[in-house]
Write a protein that binds this DNA or RNA. Structure first.
Lengths: 228, 228
DNA sequence: CGTTGTGAACTCATTCACAGCT
DNA sequence: AGCTGTGAATGAGTTCACAACG
């Protein structure tokens, strides 16, 4: 059924590609490139991957490079944002108001990329009622009513492992579409609710693994672009 | 090394496999399995991968399963710890004493897996001299002398992007072998110093990407960020 | 039986190499 | 000249399917 003469550029792109797009985007923002254009080699050096990889990734977004010239930085940033779905603000609530939550609230990177924390929840009576970074901490029992009222689409879980699944369930029932989970457990959610888990202990374990492994192969190391 | 016919742990295991080993390890610890044995199916369900994947991963550690029975939970945990290099404690210093650092210090998962934070550094005069979680905050200028004195092998960077590279250089010069980096920048280090970067904003972007993408395909498994 | 271990097939991801545009 | 886009080749990772074994 080929009605459109212009196929939308977004085929399905892999998770790994999406991660790299985020990295490219970061470089585009900071390094106000001369002439407003960047080459695949520039980006490759900046994020530590091969130039071929960059071109392959960017080609997946459509034809937005100009041969002999490079990519228009501004246009590229816009295209990446649209592809990643961050060309509009996302509203999120944060559940579990501990140190990690405070760190996230203060983290500029979130607001900069259009992620708005619009509500805080905790089930510790000592924390409920406090104001943190300008937001009132509400009891978790109010999630069913408040999450829809706040029009939150995402939930950030910074709670102990024991309570993570129950609160994930509550957020799911309240209508969130995605969860950023910092508890070291596998959350069970319906397929419509996506989950990204960040497990800090595992990251340290990975580092230990990399450090202790024979000096020979550590593929994470930057590849000299002057490949043969 | 003891006597006997033990084959040395087969080298060459991929980064992805190492990540999953961490996940398996977690399940072994918590779920005190009946009879002390687990099957690949048990582990597969617990961490959300296929049973074949589990068997492939575990086979890489040597022959420690018994056909028709399964794997001895305790023995498996020991083997995984040895393979990941966490069968002994690791000493780490933490640079940048903000909320994230406080969250990490309080995070039980670190100490449980044998990661000891033995020193704190910050270049904010207001923070230097404070005691946080029982540790004195020292000025970053003392890193060259103190890191070797503390016998720290790893460094955790929870500092703003602008200062990350300079402090990575300082830690490298002071002899650390690995860095856990929370700043959204690509750190340049000699090949002998391994880096794992955790970029929280990117994780949120990935979540947004997954949520906005056509309902069709989103595999439940989540992949933490790649190092370096 | 039930479960592991593993060759083989297969899918996904990356690099190579170069044609084609500027 | 420089740089992108992409088929082809390569490599890495995962699943299949089943023999081997307690």
């Amino acid at each position: 059924m080929g009605a459109g003469h212009f196929s939308e550029p977004e085929a399905r792109l892999s998770r790994a590609t999406a991660q790299r797009l985020s990295l490219y985007l970061r470089c585009l923002g900071s390094g106000a490139r001369n002439g407003g254009t960047v080459s695949s080699v520039d980006l490759a050096r900046a994020v530590g991957v091969s130039a071929a990889q960059v071109r392959r990734d960017l080609a997946a977004l459509g034809h937005l490079g100009r041969r002999g010239v490079g990519y228009d930085a501004a246009g590229l940033a816009t295209a990446i944002r649209r592809t990643l779905g961050i060309d509009r603000p996302w509203r999120a609530v944060l559940v579990g108001v501990g140190n990690l939550a405070r760190a996230l609230l203060r983290y500029r990177g979130f607001r900069d990329q259009g992620f708005l924390i619009v509500g805080l929840f905790d089930n510790d009576p000592a924390k409920v009622g406090q104001t943190v970074e300008g937001l009132l901490v509400e009891p978790t029992s109010t999630i069913p009513a408040r999450v829809p009222a706040l029009r939150a689409e995402l939930g950030v879980l910074t709670v102990p492992s024991e309570s993570a699944q129950a609160l994930a369930d509550a957020l799911t029932a309240a209508g969130v579409r995605g969860l950023l989970n910092f508890a070291p457990v596998l959350l069970r959610t319906p397929a419509t609710v996506r989950v990204v888990t960040v497990d800090l202990a595992i990251q340290l374990e990975q580092l230990a693994f990399l450090v202790q492994l024979p000096d020979g192969q550590a593929e994470g190391v930057e590849r000299p672009p002057a490949g043969r």
